[in-house]
Each structure stands twice: as structure tokens, then as C-alpha cells.
């Protein structure tokens, strides 16, 4: 009887502990979601459930049904005038769309996506070749390269930021928006390369060499082996590394804030969000909706590769 009672206390304690851990981890996300759906009068209410659902923030960010909202009635009447050509009409409405009042979420999203996708894709190709080389082929200098990749882990972004910025200024790249954008793309590729090399190297080493030997005997060249044998065999690992690199670039703030500072059109999501928060005081619903929308792609990608990513993360630590 006593043992049973003790057991029950233990069990409830254990479940409370799990509840506590989950709450600690998830609460900020729930608060984000709740606040993005609340009206202003509801913000101070500690309950997570909105009294009335407010979808305005999402509509505004995703540009649904807000195209002409900022246009005054007099202008709307002017637009109905049949004498106007289409081009004229478009230029008038355009003026009102870019009043700066609307946060160009979709454009920032696009910029972020383009940068992250391209950078991690190029980095994946370079890293596949490199990782295959130092995990499979014997040559002098291999050890140095392997250790060098690990050593690069120790460099913080700030150590590279000033010299790279100076190079971009002195070479004239930083003078134009496209130059800055390309610099940033290259930087993201470089930043994700060591991680990709490291993770892929670990994975390639786990593929039995006998498979390659069989292909060699069948008359495949080394290069054919890479794309006929190694790449198909490591598709899960490749997609994991790609997504990990994508996440690094998607999250990056430091370099973006310096390189894109004066090119508002090219902002990525992190700097765009920060600028939105600084410029307008306490528009919590929009900020939270933007946060949710920024986190969503990453969380979805993560769920796709969860199993592989988790084992990848634990196989020896990954750079943040």
C-alpha cells in the first residue's frame, strides 16, 4: 500500500516534470501565435486564447486584400477615369503601395529564400567533392585539411566581418546594391562550407568501401563512382546538410545588417524584422505574425529531416 502510494506520487511528479520542460520549451511559441491573433485591447490579457480572432496582421504581411487600402477615395475616383492609360494607372497605384506603411514581408522573404537556397546549394556541391576527397582518398596534406576544417569552427563572425567588409569597400562591390547582395551570397556559401564538409565527411566514411570497389571493378572511373554510387547512397545525408546550411543562412543577421544596410529593397527577413520593430513602436500583432511566418519554413524543413538531422547533430557537434 505504502509502496503504491509512493509510486503514484513519483509518477505524478515525473509527469509534472515533463510538463514543465515542454512548457519551458514551447511557451514562447504559443505566446507568439496567440499574440499574432489578438486585437490590441487584448494584448495585456495574460490568457493565451484571444477574445476575438484578428487576422489583419497576417493579411497585411501576405498582401491579401490590402492592395488599395491605403489609397484615398479621391485617388480611387481618379483611377476610375477611363481616360487614363494602364501605365498611368499603375504608376499612380504604385505610389500608394510603397508608402512604407506596409512591411514588404514577401519581398524580404524572397530575398532571404534566394540567398539561403543558392548559397547552400553551391556549398553542397563544393562540399560533396571536398568531403569525398578527404574521407576516401589518401594523399599528403589530407590530415592538415581535415584539421583545418575543424579549426575554422573557432572563428566567430565578427573576426571575418571587418576584413571582408573592407575588401568589399575597397574593391567597389559594396558601392552597389547588387554587388553587396553578391558579396553576401558568397559569404553565406563560405560560412556554410566548413559545416557541410565536416558533416558529409563523417557520413561518407560510414559507407562501406566494398561498394565502391565493386563499381571500380565494373570499370567505373572515380568520378562516376561519386555521382553513380556515393550521391544516390547519401541522399538523406545530402538533404540534411543542405537544410542545415539553409537554416544557417536563413538565420544570419550580422553580415546582412552590415552589407545591406543602405539597400532597403534587398533586406533579408532578419534585418527587415529588426528594422520593423525599431521603427514602429509596439505593433505586437504584426511583429508576432512576421515571426511566425519567418519560423514556419524552417520548422517545416526540420520536420522533414528530423531523424537525420538529430543523428547528424549528435555525431560530433555542428557549428551554430
Amino acid at each position: 500500500m505504502v509502496v503504491k502510494k509512493k509510486n503514484i506520487i513519483r509518477k505524478t511528479g515525473f509527469f509534472l516534470l515533463i510538463l514543465l520542460i515542454v512548457t519551458f520549451a514551447v511557451f514562447p511559441f504559443l505566446q507568439m501565435l496567440s499574440l499574432s491573433l489578438k486585437y490590441q485591447f487584448d494584448w495585456g490579457n495574460p490568457s493565451l486564447i484571444p477574445k476575438k480572432i484578428n487576422l489583419e496582421a497576417y493579411k497585411e504581411l501576405l498582401n491579401i486584400g490590402t492592395k488599395l487600402r491605403a489609397v484615398p477615395d479621391s485617388i480611387k475616383r481618379l483611377l476610375e477615369n477611363k481616360a487614363l492609360t494602364r501605365a498611368q494607372r499603375r504608376s499612380i497605384t504604385k505610389k500608394y503601395q510603397e508608402t512604407g506603411d506596409v512591411f514588404p514581408f514577401l519581398r524580404y522573404f524572397g530575398n532571404s529564400f534566394f540567398l539561403s537556397f543558392t548559397a547552400s546549394f553551391i556549398s553542397l556541391i563544393v562540399a560533396t567533392l571536398g568531403a569525398y576527397s578527404f574521407s576516401r582518398i589518401n594523399y599528403r596534406g589530407r590530415g592538415i585539411i581535415q584539421r583545418g576544417v575543424l579549426f575554422v569552427y573557432m572563428f566567430g563572425g565578427i573576426l571575418l566581418l571587418i576584413p571582408l567588409y573592407q575588401v568589399a569597400i575597397k574593391s567597389g562591390l559594396a558601392r552597389t546594391g547588387s554587388g553587396s547582395f553578391i558579396s553576401l551570397l558568397i559569404i553565406y556559401m563560405v560560412q556554410t562550407l566548413p559545416v557541410s564538409l565536416y558533416m558529409l565527411g563523417n557520413y561518407f566514411r560510414s559507407i562501406p568501401f566494398s561498394i565502391e570497389e565493386a563499381a571500380l571493378i565494373d570499370g567505373c572511373t572515380r568520378f562516376e563512382i561519386i555521382y553513380r554510387v556515393i550521391i544516390p547512397l547519401s541522399l538523406p545525408a545530402l538533404s540534411t546538410v543542405f537544410i542545415y546550411a539553409f537554416m544557417i543562412a536563413w538565420n544570419e543577421y550580422l553580415f546582412a545588417s552590415v552589407f545591406l544596410r543602405s539597400y532597403k529593397n534587398l533586406y533579408t527577413l532578419p534585418i527587415g524584422l529588426k528594422a520593423l520593430f525599431v521603427s514602429k513602436n509596439a505593433i505586437w500583432d504584426r511583429i508576432m505574425a512576421a515571426s511566425i511566418l519567418t519560423a514556419t519554413p524552417v520548422v517545416i524543413l526540420f520536420m522533414i529531416v528530423q531523424k537525420n538531422l538529430v543523428s547528424g547533430l549528435t555525431s560530433g557537434g555542428v557549428k551554430e
Binding site: 505566446q31 507568439m32 537554416m247 515571426s291 528530423q306
Partner: peptide, 24 residues
């Protein structure tokens, strides 16, 4: 499910979670 949920803080972009903490 629990194991997946508690990974969320680690994978969500920093920028998307700071504002929730500031609001807190």
C-alpha cells in the same frame, strides 16, 4: 512528440523568437 517539441527552441531562427521574449 515531446522529444520533437523540445527541439523547437534550437531550430527556430533567433529573429523569430526574440520578440516573443521581449514581449514576455
Amino acid at each position: 512528440l515531446v522529444r520533437a517539441l523540445i527541439l523547437l527552441p534550437y531550430i527556430a531562427p533567433v529573429i523569430s523568437v526574440v520578440f516573443s521574449w521581449q514581449f514576455f
